[in-house]
Design a protein around this nucleic acid. Structure first.
Lengths: 301, 301
DNA sequence: TCTCTCTGTTTGTCCTGGACAAAAATCAAT
DNA sequence: ATTGATTTTTGTCCAGGACAAACAGAGAGA
């Protein structure tokens, strides 16, 4: 149907696979084997790009590229999107699936209304832990299974981010500890960071949000300028895990001793524990760690 | 002072200059000429990275790399950050400079308060056009002149985005036209998009925001799914201009004829006019174009 | 004097093919 | 069954070459 072609830079942008990796896979596995234009430059088809995106997604879940490229001739890859039928038979909380169904109907207003209702019913903390977090997880799974389009995931993220930000803005300004929140360059997912900010703010911490993708050196400067007690970083499952340990070591060395470094998200959970870096395994752990900081730093209060 | 080193991938991330460009500059101009580790891999110093960031920024303003690398031995590049003295003697609107000064003191609360006050005084439309837009411009200039740190720019962006989103959320839901707003992959600046959304929403349009970096093919699908009348894209000055024309042609071909394609931002203004693509040169132009759409599509109403 | 077209230069991206190190998996031995 | 050593897998980097698009400046014509 669509006869558009991608050059190698476009494939890199849309799949997250570097040019080097794309060329190397072609050499080693014979896939993808794109056409060439008159100048010898690679021209990837839409189908190849879609398959590469699926492979990348599965790799983020821990699968290995060699296996994926070999195993999936076409059958194992794309369970085609079903119409509006029974969506997921296996799940216990059908309300979350209902929310996903609303997103799939592109009904932004209805989605916000339903979420507001859940927020009022559950309270902010439970809302973050029991609604937003599992919903984000399910949206990711749904994409994996071909039940959701990329733009539907974008819509979900944007609407949810707006809702959370609005809610945070209404919270009273906190006190100590002062937590600087951001992500490293390359990590653009903001939802996890925002969930953490919500919970920390609820607990009475003062959060300074710098948005995403702050260069290392600027995180150090910002922490000093704001006299932060803690630097909090969020890592999604998509963050490249190879450079992560080195980055953390470097950042840890930049920060003065008393400033703590906390990392969270599914990309952080996979990492081995490191000295000088606190891994927050989930939101309960985050809240407990915050309480722990308080008991050490302000034991009498 | 800081003896951290960057490998070539880190430099690419932090400067936005591709590995190929970094190697090519070394070959052609002899700068940057990084150290090598035991394996022959390049190791860039903090100083080199800082200079590269400055060069990149000046290139975005239209300067040429050959000149920049030759001309700036060190003197022309970094007018060192002044303390808290008189900030910019040349400007007529000192209130905007006051706002920048507040950012430089990292006083988030005071900044928000001052902005809220300006918003109430000017009204939303004038606020966007006369406060937010020129302020963003000045922040960029200030970075260029070394008067502002990267993390201060991040703080400004984050706070301003929150303020605008909050304000948009309070607006009544609009009707036609239905405008799908997003950016292309590689463009992560959201402030311009948000300013446009504010003005469009004020004019009674229905805006569907997908956040940033939506792949081309998904923009097409989203436009169809949401039955959008218009697709609006924002391009900052940093967006690479070389691939832009091809991307617009491709997207235009994906969209059905009646859906209009509007582009705005300083990265769009530099582009030559193209058939089938409306360039919005500034916010007044955007509002006029919206009125024009209405008069053509709903002449009687 | 101004505008347009043509030509040379600048600049970024892509290519091939090779090398190596870190991580994962497999195998061996306690 | 756990630990340690070896092999395989995998990604990143390197060098140096080629080319096309963008740009600047010179010259021709109005």
């Amino acid at each position: 149907m669509s006869e558009f072609t991608y050059n190698i830079a476009a494939v890199e942008r849309d799949t997250g696979l570097s040019k080097d990796v794309l060329r190397m896979w072609e050499r080693r596995y014979g896939f993808p084997m794109p056409e060439r234009d008159g100048n010898g430059d690679r021209l990837y088809s839409t189908e190849q790009v879609e398959r590469l995106r699926r492979i990348k997604r599965l790799m983020d879940q821990g699968h290995r590229p060699g296996k994926l490229i070999a195993t999936s001739p076409e059958e194992l890859a794309p369970p085609r999107r079903v119409g509006a039928g029974p969506v997921a038979p296996q799940d216990p909380d059908s309300e979350l699936e209902d929310l996903i169904a609303v997103i799939r109907q592109h009904a932004g207003g209805a989605y916000l209304q339903a979420m507001q209702q859940r927020l009022a019913r559950q309270g902010l903390q439970r809302f973050v832990q029991d609604t937003v977090a599992p919903l984000a997880q399910r949206i990711g799974d749904a994409w994996e299974q071909g039940r959701i389009e990329v733009f539907e995931e974008h819509l979900f993220t944007e609407l949810t981010v707006r809702l959370l930000r609005q809610t945070i803005a209404a919270l009273p300004s906190g006190d100590r500890p002062r937590i600087l929140l951001t992500t490293l360059p390359g990590e653009q997912h903001v939802l996890g960071l925002l969930m953490a900010e919500t919970l920390f703010a609820l607990e009475g911490a003062e959060c300074i949000a710098l948005g995403t993708q702050t260069p290392l050196i600027d995180i150090g400067r910002a922490a000093a300028a704001h006299q932060a007690d803690i630097v909090g970083l969020s890592f999604s499952i998509h963050f490249p895990s190879r450079p992560l340990p080195g980055l953390l070591t470097q950042l840890r060395a930049m920060l003065p001793e008393p400033i703590e470094l906390w990392i969270g998200g599914r990309g952080a959970a996979q990492l081995a524990p490191r000295p000088g870096v606190h891994r927050l395994l989930d939101f309960d752990d985050a809240i407990a760690t915050l309480a722990g900081w308080r008991s050490v730093r302000h034991p009498t209060r």
